[in-house]
């Protein structure tokens, strides 16, 4: 008789896997990716390809030659995802070397220093992005105008709606259709609110994420910006514009919901989401930068362990 396998229960597994989740998010990014390609053409393709390829390469090289692992972790999809998200957060006319540098910081500093997937306290793509934003503010804030399909470094640039708003020029903003579809300047993956929402719906449907983080971020921003708009429409943008411009939608649906760096309990996730919403609006309206989503997420990433410590799920049998 052959040897039986003995192990403790459970003896079956639901079939979920890290790969399914990571590639699931990648699939959810496809609509926004197509939108990015549609609006920024060649530049978007080059930036995204470079970003993904260099993220995967750095992941492989670092895990194999510095951490001394087998390097198989590249297939789990997390490096591809980081590459995609980093690319989404860059303007489509960014020089190649800057993208590679950003990828190195994202994977090398943001992720592998801490031990790789699951260990990083901060969202790697945002670490890369914010590093570039602070170190190379000029390149990182010259946004190409949408619709230049064949240009890359030579694309014409113009201010984004948020840039205009921070200069107090609220009259020149795109109309609602353009805002929703993404026909405006900005990072190549963040412009199309509709495409991002579509991806988010897919994530929710596939149960890759729960509603808590995106809804609490978007809800907080909508309510607070609504209040500000009602108080003073001449200084503050209307809520729809606030929600559809900048990295808000991308951040709320894809960056803040990153498993590793977001809180573990529903209650914690709502606190995290609300705080991100508040910090974003504070930075946008009263801070030095026109956009604050990345900073808000990174700041709240830092609070995640604290939130996890204090926001416990309600134990069964204790008071509701």
């Amino acid at each position: 008789m052959s040897k039986f396998i003995i192990s403790l229960s459970p003896h079956v597994h639901g079939g979920d896997s890290v790969e399914k989740n990571m590639y699931g998010v990648c699939v959810a990014l496809v609509p926004a990716l197509l939108a990015g390609l549609y609006f920024f053409g060649l530049g978007a393709a080059i930036v995204l390809t470079t970003s993904v390829v260099s993220c995967v390469a750095f992941e492989f090289l670092i895990s194999k030659y510095i951490l001394g692992r087998d390097g198989r972790s590249v297939t789990d999809g997390s490096a591809i995802l980081t590459g995609l998200l980093l690319g989404f957060n860059l303007p489509s006319n960014l020089p190649l070397w800057l993208i590679v540098l950003g990828a190195l910081v994202a994977i090398g500093v943001g992720k592998m220093t801490f031990g790789g997937l699951g260990q990083n306290p901060f969202n790697p793509a945002l670490v890369g992005r914010v590093f570039l934003l602070i170190s190379f503010p000029v390149q990182m804030t010259s946004w190409p105008v949408a619709g230049q399909l064949t240009s890359y470094l030579d694309a014409q640039t113009a201010a984004t709606p948020l840039g205009l708003a921070s200069q107090g020029r609220l009259d020149n903003l795109p109309d609602a259709t353009d805002l929703l579809l993404g026909n405006m300047g900005g990072s190549l993956g963040e412009v199309s609110a509709l495409a991002l929402l579509l991806g988010c719906a897919w994530l929710l449907w596939k149960r890759i994420i729960t509603w808590h983080i995106p809804v609490s971020i978007l809800g907080t921003v909508a309510v607070l910006s609504g209040l500000l708009y009602v108080a003073d429409p001449s200084t503050y943008m209307n809520p729809l514009t606030v929600l559809t411009t900048g990295g808000l939608m991308l951040g709320a649906c894809f960056m803040a919901t990153d498993y590793v760096t977001s809180p573990m309990t529903p209650r914690g996730q709502v606190i995290y989401g609300v705080m991100i919403g508040i910090i974003t609006l504070v930075i946008r309206n009263w801070g030095a930068y026109p956009e604050g989503m990345s900073f808000a997420i990174l700041i709240m990433n830092a609070f995640t362990p604290l939130i996890n410590t204090y926001c416990k799920p309600r134990r069964f049998g204790t008071k509701k």
């Binding site: 040897k3 039986f4 396998i5 003995i6 192990s7 403790l8």
Partner: peptide, 22 residues
């Protein structure tokens, strides 16, 4: 000789919970 194959966390305490063990 091993008469069974233990599949789980490589810890004696865990294997002990399966009973006789390998």
């Amino acid at each position: 000789p091993r008469v069974a194959e233990f599949d789980g966390v490589q810890s004696c305490r865990v294997q002990q919970m399966t009973g006789r063990g390998e």
